[in-house]
């Protein structure tokens, strides 16, 4: 994968496009994108959640998972090829697993609510929404840590700095 990362990114983008087309071609349901609140102007409501997800639920969830995979692949593309070591790939893989887990808990937590109309709360929000609000934000923190803590190792090493300074010195010499 290391040498063919761009092909994997391309392949993922193509599958995302196919899923998007499939969603657009699926049988539509009324007010899938929300409708005005019957009593308050300016407010929108979602209405029947189960009906809105009936035809596109799994396709949409697949799109979300593909997006998370693409985010991880693109982050890896930002690391020079020689630093895409097993260590880096395992960090990136771990980060992806965490993001997918949060997406899973959110999506199927919502499905469970639709089936039972009951939910617990976590820090002010229904469980599924708490996974979305806190979980989605926190699940990308490993990517931030890989970048910041691994900066000298994976992003811009001392050797890289020397190479860049040499390049600048050449430029300045040529400009003189």
């Amino acid at each position: 994968m290391r040498g063919h990362l761009i092909h994997t990114i391309f392949f993922t983008a193509v599958i995302m496009a196919v899923v998007l087309v499939a969603i657009c071609l699926t049988e539509t349901v009324p007010d899938a994108g929300g409708k005005p609140h019957p009593d308050y102007s300016g407010l929108q409501i979602g209405g029947d959640g189960a009906a809105r997800l009936e035809h596109i639920g799994l396709l949409s969830f697949s799109f979300q998972c593909l997006l998370l995979i693409q985010i991880t692949l693109l982050s890896t593309l930002g690391v020079p090829e020689r630093y895409r070591t097993t260590e880096l790939l395992s960090y990136m893989g771990g980060s992806l697993v965490l993001m997918l887990l949060v997406a899973w808990k959110m999506f199927f937590g919502h499905q469970a609510f639709l089936a039972t109309q009951e939910t617990d709360y976590f820090f002010g929000f229904p469980d599924a929404t708490a996974w979305q609000t806190y979980g989605t934000w926190l699940s990308a923190i490993p990517l931030v840590l890989i970048y910041s803590l691994g900066f000298n190792k994976f992003i811009f090493s001392l050797e890289d700095e020397k190479k860049f300074n040499a390049l600048l010195a050449e430029k300045n010499k040529n400009n003189r």
Binding site: Q44, I45, P126
Partner: peptide, 25 residues
């Protein structure tokens, strides 16, 4: 905040679920 979200949930649950009123896509 839990009371606030409970009021919204009682009015229209989807609004305070992960994909909100505008829907998943």
């Amino acid at each position: 905040m839990q009371e606030a979200t409970s009021i919204i949930l009682a009015d229209d649950a989807e609004t305070v679920m992960p994909y909100g009123a505008a829907g998943i896509m």
